[in-house]
Simulated scan of single mutants.
Amino acid sequence: MPAPNVTPPWQSPDPLGYGHGSKEAQFVAAPLLAAAALGLAGVVAGAKDDLFLFSGPTLLILVLSAMSLIFSIQLAYHARKFLYSRQDVYDWHEYEAADERTRLALRTKQYNDYRTWFRFNNKANLGFNTGTVLLAFGVAAALAPGGDSSQKGWRWCAAGIVLACAFGEIYWQHRLTRLIDERAAENSRPVRQGGST
């Protein structure tokens, strides 16, 4: 929290669409992926043991995926309560007409609430990313042929494609996180006045 005699800056996501993107992932994609993980887990649990190469581990990975995705939905739901804009403060609290003490209190509240949203939203994103990667590993494990399948080559090929995509997703998540961290560091540098030289 900033010092009491310093007016905190208004907080906003960087990039500005970060809150909207997180909302789409948490409230649209995560429920669908969790349902897919639980549906596939039900198929694996109800099948004969020799139908899947690794039925026990496959079931565990799929359940972990579903729980991670559901956890991310819950975290995002609670975090979303703390994300609002400067315009929301102006609209709901008649900021322009308020005295200086009230303005400071409102800006401090928005500053602290944004920090709360950011912390919990990042945890929700981690849960979502973990759940999607686990789902890919679970699908790959379910595709690995068990027993005397006449389609072993095709199933191994499909499992390999899903595994390649899972590792691509891990790479993409790492790269995107690094790019956002670099952007945040760049934006935290002081801006020179008077144009570039």
Rank of each mutant, 00 (worst) to 15 (best):
C165W: 01
D14N: 15
G21Q: 11
A29Y: 09
L59T: 14
L176E: 09
V6W: 02
T116E: 06
E186H: 04
A76Q: 08
A124W: 02
S12M: 15
P9N: 07
F128I: 06
V43R: 09
Y95V: 04
I73D: 00
A142W: 01
W172C: 15
D99H: 00
N125V: 10
E182A: 14
F52C: 00
N5Q: 04
K23I: 02
G160P: 08
A141G: 06
Y95L: 06
F120E: 03
R101Q: 13
V139R: 06
D14P: 00
G56K: 03
A79S: 05
V139C: 05
L126F: 13
A98R: 07
T116K: 05
E100C: 04
L16W: 07
V191A: 13
P4E: 09
W92D: 13
S22W: 06
K123I: 15
A141P: 01
A25M: 11
G19W: 03
L134F: 00
G160Q: 08
R86A: 08
A97R: 02
Y77D: 05
A124Q: 01
G146E: 10
D91A: 07
S22C: 10
A184L: 10
L176N: 13
A144D: 10
T58L: 10
N129P: 06
G146L: 01
I170T: 06
T58S: 07
A105H: 15
T132E: 06
F128T: 04
F71I: 09
V133T: 08
R80W: 11
V133I: 14
G46R: 11
D181N: 06
E24N: 12
D113Q: 02
F27E: 13
P2T: 07
A159N: 04
L40Y: 12
F167A: 10
N122Q: 14
D50S: 11
F118S: 13
R101N: 06
K123F: 14
T130L: 07
V63K: 04
R178I: 09
A35Y: 09
E182F: 03
E169M: 15
E100T: 10
R86F: 04
G42H: 01
F120T: 05
Y18R: 06
W154G: 15
V191G: 13
S150Y: 01
R189M: 04
L176C: 05
Q26K: 04
F54A: 03
N5H: 07
N121Y: 10
A3Y: 05
A98N: 01
D88K: 05
V191F: 09
F137Q: 02
Q26G: 01
A124S: 12
G17P: 03
I73M: 15
K81A: 06
P4L: 04
L16Y: 12
L135D: 03
W92A: 15
A98D: 00
F71S: 13
G168P: 03
N121I: 12
R189L: 11
D99W: 08
P31G: 14
I180A: 08
A36G: 08
W156P: 02
R189D: 14
A45F: 03
Y95N: 12
D113V: 10
A105E: 07
A3S: 08
A124F: 09
E186G: 08
N121W: 01
E94M: 05
A35Q: 02
A97D: 15
L134K: 13
A166Q: 11
A166S: 12
F137N: 01
Q193R: 15
S196M: 14
R107K: 00
Q151A: 07
